[in-house]
Simulated assay, not measured.
Amino acid sequence: MANQDDATRLWELIDKIGFCMLTTRSGDDLRARPMSAYTAQLENAIYFLTDVGSHKDDEITRWPNVCLAFADTKGQKYVSVSGTAEVQNDRERIRELWATPAKAWWDNPDDPSIRILKMTPASAEYWDSPGTIISYIKMAAAAVSNTKPDMGDNAEVKL
């Protein structure tokens, strides 16, 4: 089990980045698509709004292991989360999570085609660098001095 500071930082990064690529299994292939994440740290869960007619819901029903990849390329912050997912029809949770991005897909939270995708993380890893410019400077200095650059924090977290 990772220390509490690593777990706290992991959840902070997920919250800050907000969007991720959700990777599911589709037969022998892997498929990734962008999703807007809603965290519930106390529940050890990450929620998404999804549509009942989407392929990812069928894929998750058959193969529940998924991976989330969060990236803030400008800030040089990255998170990879592995766990299991399930599709739920929790109408109260849908109303709780309803936000502006959802309006691009549905008219209102009462749309009967909206579902909840709940991801329960099992493990994660994050890379938290001081930023692009500082990272480049550190890499250049390390190259000149034949040392390895300190690129920020990296931790594996069991959840």
Score class of each variant (00 low, 15 high):
6 D>T: 13
8 T>Y: 11
9 R>Y: 04
9 R>K: 07
14 I>G: 11
16 K>L: 00
16 K>E: 00
20 C>A: 12
22 L>A: 03
27 G>T: 06
28 D>Q: 14
29 D>M: 10
29 D>Y: 10
32 A>Q: 11
33 R>T: 07
37 A>H: 05
41 Q>W: 00
42 L>M: 09
43 E>Q: 15
43 E>L: 14
48 F>V: 09
48 F>D: 04
49 L>F: 01
54 S>L: 09
54 S>V: 02
55 H>G: 07
55 H>T: 07
58 D>E: 14
59 E>S: 09
60 I>R: 02
60 I>G: 02
60 I>P: 01
75 G>W: 00
78 Y>H: 13
83 G>I: 10
83 G>P: 09
85 A>D: 04
87 V>T: 09
88 Q>W: 09
89 N>R: 11
94 I>H: 00
101 P>Q: 10
101 P>K: 12
101 P>D: 06
106 W>H: 12
107 D>F: 12
108 N>R: 15
116 I>S: 03
117 L>H: 05
118 K>I: 01
119 M>R: 02
123 S>E: 06
124 A>S: 05
126 Y>E: 11
129 S>K: 12
130 P>H: 12
133 I>K: 11
133 I>M: 14
139 M>V: 15
141 A>G: 01
142 A>P: 12
145 S>Y: 02
148 K>G: 08
148 K>V: 04
149 P>W: 01
150 D>G: 09
151 M>P: 02
152 G>Y: 02
153 D>S: 14
156 E>W: 09
158 K>M: 01
159 L>C: 04
159 L>Q: 05
